[in-house]
Design a protein around this nucleic acid. Sequence first.
DNA 1: GCGCCATAGGTTAGCGCTAACATCCCGCCC
DNA 2: GGGCGGGATGTTAGCGCTAACCTATGGCGC
Lengths: 349, 349
Amino acid sequence: MEVEGAASPPERSRRPAVMSDVGRLAGVSHQTVSRVINGSRHVRPATRERVLAAMRELGYRPNSIARALVTGRSQTLGVVSFDTTLYGPASTLFGIERAAHEAGYFIIIASLKALDRASVSEAVDRLSLHGVDGILVIVSEQGSAQALLDTVPSVPMVAVEGGPDQGIPVVAVDQREGARLATRHLLELGHRTVWHVTGPVASLEAQARIRGWESALVQAGAPVPPPLTGDWSARSGYFLGRQLSREASATAVFVGNDQMALGLLRAMHEAGRPVPGDVSVVGFDDIPEAPFFTPPLTTVRQDFGEVGSRSLRVLVRAIEAHQAGVRPPEGSLVAPELMVRASTAPFTG
Amino acid sequence: MEVEGAASPPERSRRPAVMSDVGRLAGVSHQTVSRVINGSRHVRPATRERVLAAMRELGYRPNSIARALVTGRSQTLGVVSFDTTLYGPASTLFGIERAAHEAGYFIIIASLKALDRASVSEAVDRLSLHGVDGILVIVSEQGSAQALLDTVPSVPMVAVEGGPDQGIPVVAVDQREGARLATRHLLELGHRTVWHVTGPVASLEAQARIRGWESALVQAGAPVPPPLTGDWSARSGYFLGRQLSREASATAVFVGNDQMALGLLRAMHEAGRPVPGDVSVVGFDDIPEAPFFTPPLTTVRQDFGEVGSRSLRVLVRAIEAHQAGVRPPEGSLVAPELMVRASTAPFTG
DNA sequence: GCGCCATAGGTTAGCGCTAACATCCCGCCC
DNA sequence: GGGCGGGATGTTAGCGCTAACCTATGGCGC
């Protein structure tokens, strides 16, 4: 079709085409090509068509690095996370990525070796050095939440799943409300009180769940048993479950997450204390396997995907606010939901 | 110390310092600053010190986008994956990220909406457009493996966890060997044959496990029962388990992954067929929860982290080979390991 | 017919860095 | 002592793109 390009034989596509190659073939300047790409109104339809045809013919792909250099925006966002192997962070990351894709951003990840301040700052630093436009920190631990405030952020940041109470926007599930839901459910089944297997002390989520559990107990006038501290693993749930199985008065347990609940279920089974006949158990998270535990686990669902996509949208708004020089947006809380299954039953004292 | 810089008061750090600012303060050209940063030998120690001091004073951070533009390398690698929520891909991704960090690369992720050819190519395209130096594709499905061959790769690629037999390097766990391990274990316990609950038909892993299971059966002269097809979820394992529980001759089951094994365990429990008393069950993956199933699950461990880090190293070598214009490296297989726990027992017919 | 303004496009200067070459200076050898 | 080699540094020219400004053209009102 284009007789113009006939001068250069199939030898084209040696080195990738750049803007001026397209311009030359279309008989316009490289700037006009840029205008076509960026949708400027000041290009005649006929010219636009010629440029588009030339782009097609040369297989032109815009170079986003050159564009990033000149615009100062890389369309890339960083995510800092600790253990992306766990279901929670993994699903959150997934939600983030989907929302980022929709918003035209890429996600680059920086996982932490350890959960201390230094590595959080180091990760944030590494990302901003690489030129990201904003950073999401999936933070779940007190030290790292603190580290966020120490960090001098060169780009907008949003904390996900937990974070400092002020300073930067936080998007998370309402942990305290979730714990209240779980505790009240057990209380309403007639249990005198509810024991609690917690996550590690430094975990913000664990702390919030403890507060929610405690407040529900206090509000109902129930005694507050000493919490048992685990580490989120099925293993720790198992050992704490063995311990609890010897506590005859323990007929209802609110476990800090589903993995520990699985371990606890196993310990109760071994100890001959049937669930839910003898002991009722509620977990937290609602991992996909929870309905298939023995027995199917009553648990509190956290919508991680929603947390991820919502936090991404907050970050994008924060970036826009930053550019416009206006106030950053607020964070928000995602509501948890109680999933009642077969691991809880009325108290039959 | 530096009287030179006194002209500009604390008003510095308005706009981030660039190389020539550092050079000016140190009394050298911007190129010498570049030499210091890139560790050139042709800089006198005294000069180097002055430059480093100036960098510190101005809080200089090199701009990696500008560097990427001129060198043509962004120090960024792309990872294409489908469901990063599952334990396998999530751990693989984690291993990749750790190894990338060590090798001085960043990881940018592109997750797929669907598992078809189009979305794989689209993701690869999106990543290379963004300027990645290489791409890892966590592929586990026949269609996408094929898509990889269709893709005209502008950058080096490596397939992870599965992929076409030729064309690009593949790093994966030896699925067939893992399936043989599981099947032989059950056969050695005296079971007449071993049933198999498989993953979805299009899954490369599922296919390889079926082949391994079949070959172990044939080699032992055992009959080959019809495989039951699941979809990796605990839910499907549960329903197929219900079906299998009615099959009196089924005393040994090799389940394609641990989640389905969990569902199957639950179905057997409900059907009053004790595991391992009546039925022996072997899973695949060895997810962290497997030891805490009821009963603790015998399963085949896949070292996902090793697959991730090994594939990253192969990709880095592929990039170097690409630049040097030599042949790309070979892929490799990671050995699986049988973890014997309490869900398998000798056949007592 | 002239100025005026809108429209369509070209020209020029960078973004911050590295690669390639040019230059200077010094010691050393014949 | 003069040329020469090589280490230390400066100068120049891009990488591929966008922003800002400039120019040509044409329609329109008076």
